[in-house]
Nucleic acid binder design. Structure first.
Length: 405
DNA sequence: TCTGGGGTCCTAGGACCC
DNA sequence: TCTGGGGTCCTAGGACCC
């Protein structure tokens, strides 16, 4: 396992040594440098809290594009060492080194160290590496010595690394499972690894049984080489402050979520067979419904009726809500051909043409150049004041399916 | 961690069928 | 109309990750 530094400071040396965080545009911490983390900054923390614990924090917008470019270059370097590279996330990768000692004339540890040095030489920043018998152990290794470390965990030393590691720090074990394990007097990763198989089989489900094997040095999670170019689901959600109860405003939020999700789905040539509509109230309770879609679609025009239906089912007047969201699920490839006898095919083709034009315009003039009329009342203030106020709708056009062709 | 956004996979239990 | 047994499919919801 190899992991990138949380914030790329390579291009701006004046930030070296300073607590840097990204996520300015979202109001929460997307990533934090080691210096910031040392001061108590955590991922997901809100920015005003960051300023409380760390006054001199440098807060930058996330530069996703730059970061993912670096990430791609690292993956390329890794593939020079082994064909079996799993791009686990934008800043992490698994590499299967099995059988490579011969060609590199060295131990696995030496290969890993060479990888680390190559990345540093070619890209100018440091990464942490963990080497072991399984993905779970390699991940523990990579976290063990974070900035610029290279940790090798051979089978005979596993217990040394697990002994002091809280069980909830193990990859795949979250708060709920940790709480359960704690009840059975299991608090460290080693106690979990040493628990007898009967207990594991009886009380834990499959993924945790896998983790248990991996902690014991038996690899059961394969390195997945296929890079993902599709999705099982696409979701869009947005939190708004202050919480609101205005029906029109909340539906407009949902409508916007739907348009955004559809744009992404169309980009990947996918259509949804299920639409999930959810809203979250101020007290953090979530209400959602799922609606089957036939035919599958990624066009807001087709999904507006189901969206409304879902909204009516989840929305209760007089409750304050803080978030809305949609999920396009059951995604199927949209080759524009699979509709049933009962679907109006000429209408479907028309719709495809319209949205093709919409996507082209958006590509040219920016997202939401053209948007659904129902998405417009998304300014809270506008609703309160009974008009659209200063809502910037200059670029937007009202767009009604009936007249479009 | 009193709370952002975007994902994945697994499981229990109901529906339905023979 | 009731009673068995067993299989598959689907869905809601849980848990976890970055």
């Amino acid at each position: 396992m190899l992991s990138l530094p949380p914030v790329n400071k390579q291009r701006t040396p004046e930030l070296k040594g300073k607590p840097v965080i990204t996520g300015k545009e979202r109001g929460i911490v997307a990533a934090a440098s080691y210096e910031a983390k040392a001061r108590g900054v955590k991922r997901g923390m809100r920015l005003f809290e960051v300023r409380q614990v760390c006054k001199d924090a440098v807060i930058l917008p996330s530069d996703y594009e730059t970061y993912s470019l670096f990430s791609m270059r690292i993956f390329e370097i890794l593939r020079h060492f082994s064909p079996d590279v799993e791009e686990y996330s934008i800043d992490e990768a698994f590499v299967d080194l099995t059988g490579l000692r011969r060609s590199f004339h060295g131990s696995y540890g030496q290969i890993a160290e060479k990888i680390r040095q190559t990345v540093e030489k070619e890209l100018g920043f440091t990464v942490s590496v963990g080497v072991s018998l399984s993905k779970v152990l390699a991940k523990i290794g990579s976290k063990h010595n974070k900035p610029n470390g290279c940790t090798i965990i051979p089978g005979r030393d596993i217990h040394i690394y697990l002994e002091t590691l809280p069980v909830e720090s193990v990859w795949g074990i979250g708060a709920n499972t940790a709480a359960f394990l704690n009840k059975h007097r299991i608090t460290t990763a080693l106690q979990f690894a040493e628990k007898d198989e009967t207990f594991i089989m009886k009380y834990l489900s499959q993924p945790y049984q896998g983790i248990w094997h991996e902690l014991n040095g038996r690899s059961v999670f394969p390195v997945v080489t296929e890079t993902k170019n599709s999705y099982q689901s696409i979701s869009k959600a947005k939190t708004f402050t202050p919480p609101a109860d205005n029906e029109i405003f909340i539906f407009a939020q949902l409508s916007k979520n739907l348009e955004n999700a559809c744009i992404k789905a169309r980009r990947y040539k996918l259509a949804a067979t299920r639409l999930i509509v959810f809203i979250r109230s101020q007290d953090f309770k979530s209400y959602g419904v799922e609606i089957r879609l036939s035919p599958p679609s990624a066009y807001p025009y087709n999904l507006m009726v189901p969206l409304k239906e879902g909204f009516i089912r989840v929305y209760k007047a007089g409750i304050l809500y803080r978030q809305t969201g949609v999920v396009l699920a059951g995604l199927v490839p949209d080759d524009g051909s699979q509709y049933s006898l009962f679907d109006d095919s000429t209408k479907i083709v028309k719709m495809a043409n319209i949205y093709e034009a919409v996507d082209r315009l958006s590509g040219k003039y920016g997202k939401h150049t053209v948007q659904h009329g129902s998405s417009l009342p998304t300014k809270q203030q506008a609703q309160h004041e009974g008009d659209r106020g200063d809502a910037p709708i200059r670029k937007s056009e009202m767009f009604k399916g009936e007249n479009a062709r």
